[in-house]
């Protein structure tokens, strides 16, 4: 439970920062260059750390290093989902299409990272636990969230360009984000009844594993920031086009 609170705290700060950034669309778009440079630098550092700093884990061997790409995808995926609701609320409150562009951009990048979680997870599980899918709490909840935001993107493809479609998508984005805690609790309840290898606890990590992991979080955050800013620019250009 305590870990969830720390997770939520960091999430809140990140959401507030991104909301502040996204509030001024022009600035957010211009920030893409900075984000890009930062992302590349941090990715290099992260990758170096994964190769040289991270140890070969005794039990699972080298394949355990998937941990350093699989886990960092999660926070940015959830950040994308929460920002979708922020964009939705912004649009419904101000009726300003700019907030709707924030919602679509964060949803798309969020789903991208969410997909990566669901791809790297099984790739890691197969060699270690010998089956592709592990009904573990985080992975299963992430799968359900993937369906919610894939439905969000599907809803948007049906009728874009009108305020009605934007309002519909905004409401669904808000519903999706409101459902996140319930999904986690429900999956925990449902899966709790069946025993599964749980994710290796992150607290007791030695420094040699913590450094590449934290670098991963920060690097992926910058990648998210970069992709979000670029996608926002594309949305802005598309709006100006029509």
């Amino acid at each position: 439970m305590e870990e969830a609170l720390r997770y939520a705290g960091v999430g809140l700060v990140a959401t507030a920062a991104l909301t502040w950034l996204a509030a001024d669309e022009a600035r957010a778009i211009r920030s893409a260059r900075v984000a890009g440079v930062l992302a590349l630098a941090l990715l290099a550092l992260w990758f170096g750390a994964v190769i040289w700093v991270a140890p070969i884990e005794r039990a699972q061997g080298i394949v355990q290093k998937i941990f350093y790409v699989h886990v960092p995808c999660a926070p940015v995926a959830y950040l994308g989902f929460v920002m979708t609701a922020v964009g939705g609320i912004g649009f419904l409150w101000r009726r300003d299409a700019h907030w709707d562009r924030v919602a679509i951009s964060s949803a798309e990048v969020g789903v991208l990272f969410c997909t990566l979680i669901l791809v790297t997870g099984p790739i890691w599980a197969k060699p270690v636990w010998n089956h592709w899918w592990v009904w573990d709490l985080r992975l299963t909840s992430t799968l359900v969230l993937w369906f919610i935001y894939a439905a969000y993107l599907f809803l948007r493809t049906l009728s874009s360009g009108t305020d009605e479609a934007r309002a519909f998508a905004s409401i669904y984005g808000i519903l999706g984000t409101a459902a996140i805690p319930f999904v986690f609790f429900a999956v925990d309840l449902a899966q709790g009844k069946t025993l599964h290898p749980s994710n290796p606890a992150r607290e007791g990590l030695p420094a040699s594993m913590l450094v590449p992991l934290l670098l991963g979080f920060v690097a992926f955050a910058c990648v998210f920031w970069y992709l979000f800013a670029r996608r926002l620019e594309v949305a802005k250009l598309e709006a100006r086009q029509s």
Partner: peptide, 29 residues
């Protein structure tokens, strides 16, 4: 080992692919 390589290449491919898709869309627009 091949699983490890697969995980990292897929992630790199997805992120780079999306970044270039955005870049191309931006230039097009």
């Amino acid at each position: 080992m091949s699983y490890l390589v697969a995980a990292y290449t897929i992630t790199a491919a997805a992120l780079l692919g999306y970044a270039f898709w955005l870049r191309r869309k931006r230039r097009e627009l």
